[in-house]
Simulated assay, not measured.
Amino acid sequence: MNFVFDFGRVLFRWRPETLLRQALPQRVTDEASARHWVGQVFQAYGGDWGDFDRGTVQPPELAQRIAARTGLTPDEVTAVIQAVPGELQPLPDSLALLQRLRAAGHRTFYLSNMPAPYADHLEATHDFVRGFEAGIFSARVGFNKPEPEIYALAQQRFGVPAESLLFFDDHAPNVQAARQAGWQALVFTDAAQAERDLRTAGCWPD
């Protein structure tokens, strides 16, 4: 079995509400305002932020676009953009799962919606990212999950049959799209649940 990992909320911490509380303390003062600004800034990772993931907009333009749309100042949006790398910290249990799969001889790959500046940061900062056999960051190929093109490109780059890939992603539409591409895929909640799911599927490397 060949395992494919998403990054945000799978291998790396991603708490947008917390990030915005820290980056925009004057705007985000409670749970309701946190939800509001998460929706406004990230747009469910479509819209402006989706273009950032796709690699078609860079941080200065992104800040201007979000500011014009939301009423935040460009400096406020820039503060959010710059805060993201600090939020993306490895999840210890997920990293342990990855290492156990590698130690058992399984090949590991990644497929992540990730803007180019953050992809560069993660590669430069975390050795385990460079330990994957291959991977795709959305901004480097011009497609985002759950678009079918990114799964086809990933399978081609990984060089293995679709049915031999097992994909972990926290977002159900991305999992469904992977299944439609012929992959096996599981919705990732946490490493313990992933292990239980793998055991149930008979894929755990005992």
Rank of each mutant, 00 (worst) to 15 (best):
I81A: 07
T125V: 09
N113M: 03
P161S: 00
Q99N: 07
T29W: 12
V80G: 11
S94R: 14
E123G: 14
W183A: 05
L62K: 00
L24S: 03
P60T: 02
Q26I: 09
L165V: 10
D206S: 15
F167T: 03
P25E: 02
D6W: 01
D6H: 06
I136Q: 08
E17K: 11
C203P: 13
Q22P: 01
A68S: 10
W204I: 00
A104F: 01
F132L: 11
L72K: 05
D6Q: 10
Q176T: 13
R130A: 15
L122H: 11
R9Q: 14
F7Y: 02
Y118F: 15
P117M: 02
R35E: 12
A152G: 09
A34L: 10
W49Y: 11
P146G: 01
V4K: 09
L20F: 02
N2S: 11
V160C: 00
A119N: 11
A152M: 10
A116I: 08
A119H: 05
R102N: 01
F52K: 04
Y151F: 08
H106Y: 13
G142I: 03
H126I: 09
L122Y: 10
D120K: 04
F7S: 00
P205Q: 05
D48Q: 15
P60H: 10
D190Y: 00
D120Q: 13
P25D: 06
G86H: 00
A185Y: 01
V28G: 02
A192Y: 11
P16C: 05
A154T: 00
